[in-house]
Amino acid sequence: MTLLRLLPAALLLFAAPAPLAARPALAVERVVVLMRHGVRAPIDGEAPAGTRTAAPWPRWPVPAEHLTPRGAQAMTLLGAEDRRVLVAAGLVPRTGCPAPRTLRIHANTAERTIASGIAFAAGVAPGCTIPVEHLAPDRADPLFEPLRAGATRFDPATAIADIQRHTGGIDALARRHAAAIAELDTLLGCGAPQGCSPITPSRILPSADGRGIDLSGPIRTTSGTAQVLLLQYAEGLDVPGWPRIDAAALRRVGTLHAALFDVFTRPPYMAAHQAAVLGRHMLAALTEADAAPVDILVGHDTNVTALAAVLHVPLHAPGYAEGDVAPGGAIWLERLYDPARKRRYVRASYRTQSPDDLRRLSPRVTVTPLPIPGCGVSGLCELATFDRMIRRRLAPAQ
């Protein structure tokens, strides 16, 4: 009886058709990258004047806002790792230099972005002359600074109302981060009963030129200080006389820096304007016939968070607070071709290095998939659908 029960199943097994031939792999046709610059020295005023610490701030090897030599090394290592991916995709030759106009790098006008682009180029195309395009220093590049460039019809009053809706109010935003503000005081170790950071009321107002908004208060004050601590750690600077600062503590207070983007880039109105020009540039790089196969933009954390907001994707990366941006962190948009279906798709991912990897100058890169809502569960979005969906979320350019 046992044999008879098994026989039909065995017959079905032998009668089953042969497995279908494996579907051809998706081919990567284009890669469009938006990355943040590498590790830099603090911006003047980033840790506000009057911020108290247990000992003097450490000395940096470069002027304020500049990419550090170690930051440049890390960007070159990152470029070498990205080169491996691009070579495997057939977008960069295994030997020799990329053909003209096949690898494009465009940076914002700041020293740190241009220097990051140059250092990255040394890794992604070693021994080659890859120009890093950028505007003159006295010009606002609308790709990276659309509000300052007047690239859209930005209305500060509408922006402020949308920010208040998105955050639940900037006072409430500060209250939600009270624990992180208290921990920041512990890390600074100044011992002052009233805290280590200057205290000002929360306010959000139109900027003096009407092209942006100005924020003051606890989030504005502490976000920059938290970022300076992260940069010090990534640079490998010692802070003798301070309390011990480790990567886990930096991740917790990093929520203060991430909160800044809840004001400047994540509210829908802000995202639509902040990503208006770079979003269209990236769509053109994915769709236009004569676009470069590899198009790399080197900008700032505000650019990366604005693009993520327009894509409706979160930014998670090992070692960082949710929503914060790693030095050298990048959103990759790949255009893929399915030869079986003769269709094109877009796939998004977030490539980062942890603070510990930056501190050790490790080449390790973490790749986090960014499934785009509205495109199904596969992580792939049909190119035409992606193009229509993202264009609707961008403010009109003028």
Score class of each variant (00 low, 15 high):
60 W>G: 01
62 V>M: 07
65 E>F: 13
67 L>A: 01
67 L>G: 02
69 P>T: 04
70 R>V: 10
71 G>E: 10
72 A>H: 03
73 Q>A: 11
74 A>I: 00
74 A>C: 09
76 T>G: 09
76 T>P: 08
78 L>A: 15
79 G>H: 13
81 E>N: 13
83 R>M: 15
83 R>S: 15
86 L>Y: 10
89 A>Y: 08
89 A>R: 08
90 G>Y: 11
92 V>W: 11
93 P>H: 01
95 T>M: 00
100 P>N: 14
102 T>M: 08
103 L>I: 11
103 L>P: 07
104 R>Q: 14
104 R>H: 14
105 I>C: 08
107 A>E: 07
109 T>M: 10
110 A>L: 04
112 R>N: 02
113 T>E: 12
115 A>F: 09
115 A>C: 10
116 S>Q: 06
123 G>K: 00
123 G>E: 00
124 V>T: 10
125 A>N: 01
126 P>L: 06
130 I>M: 05
130 I>S: 01
132 V>I: 01
133 E>M: 08
133 E>C: 04
137 P>W: 03
137 P>C: 03
138 D>A: 07
138 D>G: 10
142 P>A: 12
143 L>V: 13
143 L>D: 09
145 E>N: 07
146 P>I: 11
147 L>M: 12
149 A>L: 01
150 G>P: 04
155 D>Y: 00
155 D>Q: 06
156 P>F: 09
157 A>D: 13
157 A>R: 12
159 A>K: 03
159 A>G: 05
159 A>D: 01
160 I>C: 02
160 I>W: 02
162 D>M: 06
164 Q>G: 14
164 Q>L: 15
165 R>Y: 10
166 H>T: 03
167 T>M: 05
167 T>Y: 02
168 G>I: 01
169 G>P: 02
170 I>H: 06
172 A>G: 11
174 A>V: 00
176 R>Q: 07
178 A>S: 03
180 A>V: 00
180 A>C: 00
180 A>R: 03
181 I>F: 01
181 I>D: 03
182 A>K: 07
182 A>T: 10
184 L>S: 11
188 L>T: 04
188 L>G: 09
190 C>P: 11
191 G>S: 04
191 G>R: 04
193 P>M: 10
193 P>S: 06
194 Q>R: 15
194 Q>C: 11
195 G>S: 15
198 P>M: 15
